[in-house]
Every structure is written in structure tokens, then in C-alpha cells.
Design a protein around this nucleic acid. Sequence first.
DNA 1: CGGAATCCCACGAGATACTG
DNA 2: CAGTATCTCGTGGGATTCCG
Lengths: 119, 119
Amino acid sequence: METITTTTHNPARCLELIPAAEDALYVIASKWTMRILLALRGGDKRFNELQRHLSGISARVLSNELKGLELNGLIARRTLDNGTVLYMHNDYADSLKSVIRELSLWGIQHKQKIRNKEI
Amino acid sequence: METITTTTHNPARCLELIPAAEDALYVIASKWTMRILLALRGGDKRFNELQRHLSGISARVLSNELKGLELNGLIARRTLDNGTVLYMHNDYADSLKSVIRELSLWGIQHKQKIRNKEI
DNA sequence: CGGAATCCCACGAGATACTG
DNA sequence: CAGTATCTCGTGGGATTCCG
């Protein structure tokens, strides 16, 4: 008989969740993912347009990034009749909202905690 | 006058949140972080004990990982009177719970989505 | 314009050995 | 036991060049 403290702790169950969390991290944690999603949320964009928008990213990296995001269904790529290639926001990207929200909340709070402690 | 659709979108505000989310990712996304936190949640452990528990991690990587986690206040390190060094769970680590929860939820759902789509 | 190919370098991480 | 030191190697990313 164990006492229930602040949190119920089930190590085995937690251990199962870790790989899933790591999968998510694999998608989100690459340097440009969130910025690209945000940029496209502001409107469809062409490759070079996107590259200009995200200052600092190389064509190669942007290309790889876009491929990955498309594979994961987070963005859409469409070739128009005139040959123009357009990258566009995909609704599925919105499914990341709560994840990103939690991440940024923790990040903000953590930065403050660190600042208050050390200096 | 714009219509409010599923989500209210404020690019500038989102852009502010990204660095915070990236800060959080920097802490969480390293390969062993979650596993170490989980291991210590199951009880205080010594260095080698921890290394055995996390099969596959090298002493060097574990050492660096522990330093980082301690700096971020996510674990505690205590040297006992007899010289034993003990790494222990810190309550602050629990602040990551909701982040990790969202990550794993998304990871699980995403894996299913990918499986259903492609095969 | 929208990339792919190539080259090159830096850095993270593994393995191993060593030390107080 | 609790790490540190060294060495090595794979991978990611930048810069540049080329192509349809």
C-alpha cells in the first residue's frame, strides 16, 4: 500500500511515453521547423521567398527542412500551372499548437527562474 | 474586420514565443534528459548506478548531461559525509510534466497518422 | 526560380583508458 | 566510485557551384 503524494508515479508507463515524446522532438526540435511553420501561416510562399523570410538559412537546409515537413504532413507543396512552386500552410500544423505553447511557457518561466537565481 | 476562424493568429506574438520554445527544447531535447529525470524519480542514484540504469550511455556523456541538468535545477547533486555522491530528483523537474505530456501525446497521435497514411 | 550536387568543417558523442 | 582525458568518427550545416 503506497501513499499517493503530489503526483502518481508510474515509471513503466512513463518509460513508454518517452519514445513518443522523442518522436515529437525529432520533428519539432530541428532549428527551423517552427519558424517555417509560422512563416507559412502568414501566407503561401515560394522557395526563395521563404529563404529571404528566414534570414540565415541556406538553400540546402531549407530544402531538406521542407521535405521533412511535407513528409510529416505539416506543410503542403503545390506546383501551379505556370510552374511556380508554392509552399503552403497545412491545417495539421495547428495540431502542434499546444505542444509549442507548453514549450514556450516553460521556456519563459525557466529563463526567469535562472535569472532570479544566478546573477 | 476579420473573421475569427479556428485560431486567432498573431504572427508577432508567435515569433516572440519561438525563442522561448527553443530554450525549452535546448534543455529537454538532449537524448538522455528525460530518461535521467525518470530514473532519478525512481530514487536517488550514484553515478555508476545511473550509468548502469541507462544502458548505452558513456561516462563522458552522462557526466555532461548531469552537469547541465544540475545547472538548470532539474536534478540535485549531494555529496554525503562518507564521500558518496548522490544524484537526486528535484521537484522542479516536475514542472516539465505538462510539456512532456503534450510532446508524447502528439508523438503518439502523429505516429498513428503517419502509419494510416503511408504503407 | 527551385532546387540538387559537391566540398568542407565543426561539433556531438562513442570507446577506451586513466586518475584521485 | 566518480569522474576526466584523449582520440576518433559520423553527422549536420554552411558555402559554393551547377542544372532544368
